[in-house]
């Protein structure tokens, strides 16, 4: 059984899981998402919960419902998500980093140097 955190409702967590997977390319644009029935059975949750999660994604114009065929990833969904994540990084994560740098007295130069080093390593 999937581990859920207790901060957010489950349908929200499923939505984020699918977003993450679209970003990772698990679900390509134009391809079909697994049916509500399969997701519910896989995660041992109520199908209404899955439908709620899918509805959130439909509302964000990331996926669309094709009558009788199920849910499909819309073209440009990954791009949209990337933009969103970038925005989130700028507005939420960077201020956190700034706070942290201050708290541990790390000069900006050191931070940038370390950042460059790790990016190089990961490539």
């Amino acid at each position: 059984m999937t581990d859920w955190n207790d901060k957010q409702p489950i349908f929200h967590q499923i939505k984020e899981l699918i977003e993450e997977q679209i970003l990772l390319g698990v679900w390509l644009e134009g391809s079909a998402l697994p049916s509500v029935r399969v997701v519910a059975a896989d995660m041992k949750i109520n199908h209404l919960t899955v439908m709620k999660a899918y509805q959130l994604l439909v509302d964000k114009n990331l996926i669309e419902k094709k009558r009788g065929q199920g849910m499909f990833v819309l073209p440009g969904a990954a791009e949209k998500l990337k933009m969103e994540k970038k925005q989130l990084f700028l507005t939420r994560d960077i201020p956190n980093i700034v706070q942290l740098l201050k708290r541990i007295d790390m000069p900006l130069q050191d931070f940038i140097k370390e950042l460059e080093k790790q990016i190089e390593e990961s490539q």
Binding site: V36, R37, A40, A41, D42, K44, H47
Partner: peptide
Amino acid sequence: YRHLIEWFHD
């Protein structure tokens, strides 16, 4: 649970 949920959904 897999069989149960699939059956219930149908």
